[in-house]
């Protein structure tokens, strides 16, 4: 009798361990997702077309060259360089961000009309990025440790099998109460995200509308963010996307902010 029960206990324990070994925890999934979503390659280049669409259907266009370089492991330091083509009156305006894990980023802006570089305080990560529905945090990523992650369910989005993760901010002053992410099991890219406000209502939806393989990196080349309350939405298309293009460290300096090298902005 005793032997039998010990044996069955072993079976039970084995089955528990085996499923544990195959399924990733919510934290692990989010970590992988962050790596493929925000940190692929050594560096990255894309011409970004951003369309800001109001509820009434009015459109504003932002067009920029975005250059990014990683320093260290996924989740670590990154530098961004952005050059604006559109709107026409901000042509030649450039924007640079040093992103640090667990610390406020540094931002600089070059205003060509007065030939002046100004540092911009990055206090509010949740503020809008160039008037779009994306926040600075949506563009450069949120510190994974700032949220508690949990697997909610599994669901198919289109033909992609996804794990749905609920991320709840640990700090209460966030403007949203939690976020649901649909993480593609195959690529680990977020296919969809839903933000719920303090009243528990869905108010912001991110969706990956086109995923392409670029130099072996699955890359979201079309994405959108819609604010359900204001009816405003932003569509972003990446053109001429490329990885490992050899961006030099010196690009990320005030000198090149004022005069960006031609080869990077064509």
């Amino acid at each position: 009798m005793r032997k039998v029960s010990a044996f069955s206990a072993m079976i039970v324990m084995f089955s528990v361990f085996s499923t544990g070994a195959f399924a990733l925890t919510a934290d692990e999934i989010m970590k992988k997702s962050q790596a493929v979503f925000l940190y692929p390659g050594d560096d990255f280049k894309a011409r970004v077309m951003m369309k800001l669409i109001s509820k009434g259907g009015q459109e504003r266009v932002r067009e920029m060259m975005m250059l990014r370089k990683n320093y260290g492991e996924p989740g670590g330091e990154q530098k961004y360089f952005m050059y604006f083509f559109q709107p026409a009156d901000v042509r030649n305006m450039t924007f640079m961000v040093y992103k640090y894990p667990g610390k406020d980023a540094d931002r600089w802006l070059f205003v060509p009309a007065i030939n002046m570089v100004r540092r911009i305080a990055a206090q509010d990560k949740r503020s809008s990025f160039v008037g779009s529905d994306f926040t600075y945090e949506d563009i450069s990523g949120r510190n994974l440790e700032d949220d508690a992650h949990a697997v909610v369910k599994e669901e198919k989005i289109g033909n992609r099998d996804c794990t749905v993760i609920k991320s709840t901010p640990k700090a209460s002053e966030m403007e949203y109460s939690y976020k649901l992410s649909w993480i593609d099991k195959a690529t680990f890219l977020p296919v969809k995200e839903e933000y719920y406000d303090k009243k528990g209502e869905l108010y912001r939806v991110f969706s990956a509308d086109e995923i392409k393989d670029v130099k072996g990196h699955p890359t979201i080349t079309k994405r959108s963010m819609k604010n359900l309350l204001s009816g405003h939405m932003t569509e972003v298309t990446f053109l001429k996307t490329d990885y490992n293009v050899g961006i030099e460290d010196s690009l990320f300096t005030e000198r090149f902010l004022k005069q960006p090298p031609k080869r990077w902005i064509e």
């Binding site: 009015q58 459109e59 504003r60 009156d89 901000v90 305006m93 007065i114 809008s128 204001s230």
Partner: peptide, 29 residues
């Protein structure tokens, strides 16, 4: 400011970080 470029860039700068409604409320697209 004295010219249109400055005004355009200032407004863009403002829109970079302010609430979208701040600018939307006072100027159309």
């Amino acid at each position: 400011p004295e010219n249109k470029e400055m005004i355009g860039q200032y407004l863009f700068l403002f829109a970079m970080s302010a609430k979208p409604s701040d600018l939307d409320n006072v100027a159309d697209y």
